[in-house]
């Protein structure tokens, strides 16, 4: 399946996604890294986010004329947000997480409870991401958190490709792959031992 989802994404549409699907997102996406997760859980969200896409990203932004422009916006390592994500999903019901590297068991369980997916965006593809950002709608907590940690609200068009890596049915490409790699490594070790 290769399709475009427009925000706000419904629980039904999020539950229809399966690990391995490739999707694109149009609509509203907001960034949150460690600090923003923590602060949103403490204070509440500065904007309604149910059904939106949450992006693990600290963009390079530049003030241009009437507003902000995003120059590069690749994903950051999602594992750091494992501390907050399950509670975050239950509280805010964002339906699509965008990041890289995958997340842990607590997040996987919360995805199933809430009806949401974790998607992987290509690490390092900062120029490709910035091209899909049509407008910066708002930036929250910039003074307090600084450019990388602030909440950037972006209007995006066909943001992707995003690989659904963890779905609401308990499937995780990362979990499956670590089993496969483990098996492959047994054969590789045997080859090295038997070689010259």
């Amino acid at each position: 399946m290769n399709r475009v989802l427009t925000t706000p994404v419904s629980e039904k549409d999020a539950r229809a996604l399966k690990a391995g699907d490739v999707i694109y997102v149009s609509g509203t996406m907001f960034t949150a890294r460690d600090e923003a997760h923590k602060m949103m859980l403490e204070r509440g969200s500065p904007l309604p986010v149910e059904g939106l896409a949450l992006f693990h990203c600290g963009p390079v932004a530049q003030e241009a004329g009437t507003g902000w422009e995003i120059l590069a916006a690749g994903p950051t390592t999602s594992a750091r947000m494992e501390l907050f994500e399950a509670e975050f999903l239950r509280k805010f019901r964002t339906r699509i997480i965008v990041g890289k590297g995958g997340m842990g068991e607590k997040t996987l369980a919360a995805l199933g409870e809430v009806g949401a997916v974790y998607t992987h965006f290509t690490g390092g593809a900062g120029a490709l991401a910035a091209k899909a950002v049509k407008r910066v709608a708002a930036v929250h907590w910039l003074e307090e958190l600084g450019m990388p940690e602030a909440i950037w609200v972006m209007e995006v068009e066909r943001f992707g490709p995003l690989v659904v890596a963890m779905d609401s049915h308990g499937q995780s490409l990362y979990k499956d792959l670590s089993v496969t790699v483990g098996k492959n490594m047994e054969a590789i070790r045997a080859r090295i031992k038997g070689g010259n």
Partner: peptide, 11 residues
């Protein structure tokens, strides 16, 4: 490359 880790660690 026989490990199967693959691009971005997605296989």
């Amino acid at each position: 490359n026989a490990s199967g880790v693959g691009p971005m660690g997605l296989g």
